[in-house]
């Protein structure tokens, strides 16, 4: 069963979902490097939680317009709008008040999420909302996913991956050395915005597969894991994309093998396993290598 899943033998939908998750994981892994390098990893947590009220409002709007509230493109559009607003709030609070970015992140995260939960209860009271199933966006759900939805996710994942790869040079410069980037005539503000925009896109695309609570893991864990293996940004980027892709692919395939194996958590746990491996075994920066080096360094010099 698992080999079938890994070899994409579980039917067209499952295959699409698995490929979509792999593309999403790779795109998230690459994008996340810029966030982690810029020490802004948790901003994406605020952004992802901020999507919930957007999803709720989009549902309500679509139902009021007489349509099907569950149409994925509409919901994702609402999610993206709310995520953008959340991002604006974080940067507004950080720049215009004395609050630190951590407080701004936490405030936006909890308040937007709270508002989203209120909207979910509003939707439950609407006649069309009984089976809305919007809760699946919390933790993601690939069970019973429509073919068109799977296609949207896979295509969007591929698009974001292409965009990140296209923009990787200016984003690397801006994240690594903003002053130098400015001196080179790059618009760092716009590049930062692009990086956050890509992170937002990943959040939105990942809602259906990983869910808004855990999507941030895809943006943080692979980059942090990849960082252990190399000091060169281009290597870290490639490796992070690879680790993210493996996690997405493996997690989605694994979850397709049995019921009760939620996709999002599996992807996250798989990426953590890869992280733990990197933490322990990476040459030079890994724990084992450090221990060995320290031992060697201490032994001859301890004669004082």
């Amino acid at each position: 069963m698992l080999t079938d899943a890994l070899l994409l033998q579980l039917g067209y939908n499952a295959t699409l979902v698995t490929l979509g998750a792999a593309l999403l994981g790779a795109a998230a892994g690459v994008t996340g490097v810029f966030l982690v390098l810029g020490k802004r990893a948790l901003v994406s947590d605020a952004v992802s939680h901020a999507t919930l009220p957007g999803i709720g409002l989009a549902f309500i709007a679509m139902v009021m317009a007489g349509g099907d509230g569950r149409a994925l493109p509409g919901l994702l559009l609402g999610a993206a709008a709310a995520a953008g607003l959340g991002l604006l709030c974080v940067s507004w609070l950080t720049r215009r008040t004395r609050l630190g970015e951590d407080a701004a992140i936490g405030a936006v995260l909890s308040v937007f999420f709270g508002a989203g939960v209120v909207l979910l209860t509003v939707i439950q009271t609407m006649s069309a909302g009984r089976q809305a199933g919007l809760e699946t966006f919390l933790l993601g759900s690939t069970a019973g996913m429509l073919r068109s939805d799977a296609l949207v996710i896979a295509l969007a994942g591929a698009l974001v991956l292409a965009l990140v790869l296209a923009l990787r040079r200016p984003m690397t410069l801006a994240a690594f050395d903003p002053d130098f980037a400015v001196a080179r005539g790059l618009n760092v503000r716009r590049i930062d915005l692009a990086a956050m925009g890509l992170a937002m896109a990943i959040t939105v695309i990942g809602l259906k597969i990983v869910g808004l609570i855990l999507i941030v893991a895809l943006l943080i864990i692979p980059p942090v894991a990849a960082r252990f293996w190399s000091d060169r940004v281009d290597h870290v980027l490639a490796l992070s994309g690879l680790l993210g892709g493996i996690s997405g692919y493996g997690g989605a395939a694994l979850s397709a093998t049995a019921p009760g194996l939620p996709t999002g958590p599996l992807i996250v746990l798989l990426s953590f396993a890869l992280f733990a491996l990197s933490l322990l075994a990476a040459p030079r920066r890994g724990v084992l290598a450090t221990l060995l080096r320290r031992r060697r360094a201490v032994a001859p010099g301890a004669g004082r």
Binding site: D45, L214, I220, P223, V224, P265, L269
Partner: peptide, 28 residues
């Protein structure tokens, strides 16, 4: 400490992983 990672990222690694483990346990 071991990974010399900034606290925000370390936090992100840990809480998402533990939450994922909780969800998986609950589902199982």
């Amino acid at each position: 400490r071991l990974g010399r990672i900034e606290p925000g990222a370390a936090m992100g690694v840990v809480f998402t992983t533990m939450f994922a483990a909780g969800v998986l346990l609950l589902e199982q």
